[in-house]
Amino acid sequence: MSYIECRKLTRAFHKGDTVIKPLRDLDLDIEEGMFLALMGPSGSGKTTLLNLLAGIDTATSGSLKIGGIELTSMPRSRLASWRADTIGYIFQLYNLVPVLTAYENVELPLLLHNYSKKERHAKVSLALDLVGLADRYDHYPRQLSGGQEQRVAIARAIVGDPKIIVADEPTGDLDAAAAAATMAMLKRLNIEFKKTMIMVTHDPKTAAVAQKTLHLEKGQLIENNA
């Protein structure tokens, strides 16, 4: 059995009388520790799939099991705590809280758990060290470059030691050098820390870092390249 199993996964939206299905009857298996890239044109359903896998959206029909847990029928409150335990999310636009320092931004997910201040400090320090920002603890997002902000966002995604890291266009807002550094970091997380990585990207160069790339079009898988 795969770590992530999607069976006939469908997501539909109602817009007036019209039903839009960004994802339809999708079957997909993702093994634990896999680095998967999702590609496809705008509106192909890749972000919808990523959101379903991250537990921030729920499927209209079908089944989605992660680690043996069925997500489609999980109530919203349980889904929130499941996300806190299982998912690390990296956004294209970093989404750091501007009034918090790098340290405090990274600490945010840990506040959902019963860690002592000392434990939190150890985890945040480790995460910031891992992304190479040990000297930027007290910096606010406005005092950091785009690449540094994304590294803080990565530290925030990994600080709780989640099993899965999802990334939505993680290099979309970065220059080439920062993008390369970010991808190297994600690759390292996948290889060294055995994190299952699922990434949405438009950029084939970025996708090339992944072990596997899936192409979506009109809500369905059209290609499967190992």
Binding site: A54, I56, A80, S81, R83, A84, D85, I87, Y89, F91, L93, N95, V97, L108, P109, L112, R156
Partner: peptide, 11 residues
């Protein structure tokens, strides 16, 4: 967006 991000984190 920030409130959305906090929900993604699990709040």
């Amino acid at each position: 967006r920030e409130l959305g991000m906090l929900q993604v984190l699990g709040y």
